[in-house]
């Protein structure tokens, strides 16, 4: 009996020792040197593996960063400035300050604004509907409402609003850009979060001329260029029958919001405007139009006047 035990223990032990020796040599032979800082950097990153930085994951980002040895072109949108600071610290570099961004949905073709003309009965992905037809409301640029962006989001930051049929981005957004990639119609854009989270943008990407655009959707950008004319900071660009507001140049003056005849320009997180202010404005507008004979000198005032004219035509 005892003998059996000894043999068993002995042989198993011998096998163990032999295996350990083999393993040791194999491990030595195939050892790969890796910069320990890669691990450190990876540790500091949020481990979301979202790909928002343009790399396959946090590990790849860390490898790329350590290899490059410079901070230029590297930014983790999820971690933001704090994490980049920390990472820079590990590598003994200085982090650039990157402006925080957020995903913005540039379509307001809700069920009310762009009523359904047909019923889609296919698979529930925008990618498929996009190649199949223009869209339920008839707009071939607008949101298809099948939530590819929601499915792409790893951070639970984008949801469909069942009432409007449009996606809504909430505070969880880390600007990883997954939804921008997922949207087949390029409706979603990453824009700077802005001062006090205030943002102004054109909520439409439609490139049709005014009449057909308006026929499909009451809040479409009709390419009238009123905003372009009123902007004093050259922040608005007109291209393919639509306006685009450059968030770098926009000074959040909100003049364009006022002139837009279709309410296609949205302002976010601004305080509610007081009615009195609006009335005063209207008065001022009347005065301005009365005193129209005076030559306008600066571009700024001419722009303001254009705006007032629009206000007036809208009222009448």
């Amino acid at each position: 009996m005892n003998e059996v035990l000894i043999y068993a223990v002995g042989s198993l032990g011998a096998i163990g020792v032999v295996a350990a020796i083999i393993l040791y040599f194999v491990a030595q032979k195939f050892k790969v040197y890796e910069d320990p800082r890669i691990d450190e950097v990876e540790e500091a990153l949020p481990s979301a593996n979202c790909g928002g930085c343009g790399y396959a994951g946090c590990r790849a980002f860390a490898e790329g960063l350590v290899k490059a040895g410079a901070m230029e072109g590297f930014n983790c949108p999820v971690g933001g400035a704090d994490v980049m600071q920390e990472v820079a610290g590990i590598l003994g570099l200085v982090a650039e300050a990157a402006e925080p961004q957020i995903a913005v949905i540039r379509c307001n073709g809700s069920l009310a604004n762009s009523p359904k003309k047909v019923e889609y009965d296919g698979i529930s992905t925008c990618a498929s509907a996009h190649v199949l037809y223009a869209g339920d409301g008839g707009c071939s640029y607008g949101c298809l409402g099948l939530a590819d962006c929601v499915a792409s989001c790893d951070f639970d930051a984008i949801h469909m609003n069942p009432e409007t049929g449009l996606p809504v981005v909430d505070v969880n957004c880390v600007a990883c850009g997954a939804c921008v990639e997922a949207c087949p119609r390029d409706i979603i854009e990453l824009r700077n979060v802005g001062k006090k989270e205030r943002r102004i943008f054109v909520s439409c990407v439609n490139e049709e001329k005014g009449a057909p655009a308006k026929k499909n959707c009451t809040v479409a950008c009709i390419g009238c260029a009123k905003c372009f004319n009123v902007c004093a900071f050259d922040a608005i660009e007109m291209k393919n029958n639509r306006a685009y507001i450059d968030y770098e140049k926009c000074k959040l003056c909100r003049k364009c919001v006022d002139v837009c005849p279709t309410d296609a320009i949205h302002e976010i997180n601004f305080p509610v405007r007081k009615l009195i202010v609006k009335e005063e404005k209207e008065k001022a507008a009347k005065v301005a139009s009365a005193a129209k004979t005076t030559e306008t000198v600066s571009a700024k005032t001419s722009a303001a006047e254009k705006k007032d004219k629009v206000n007036k035509t809208e009222e009448s």
Binding site: V118, E119, Y120, G122, S128
Partner: peptide, 8 residues
């Protein structure tokens, strides 16, 4: 008439 349906 109800809305026409669209599918592939």
């Amino acid at each position: 008439m109800s809305l026409l349906s669209i599918s592939a």
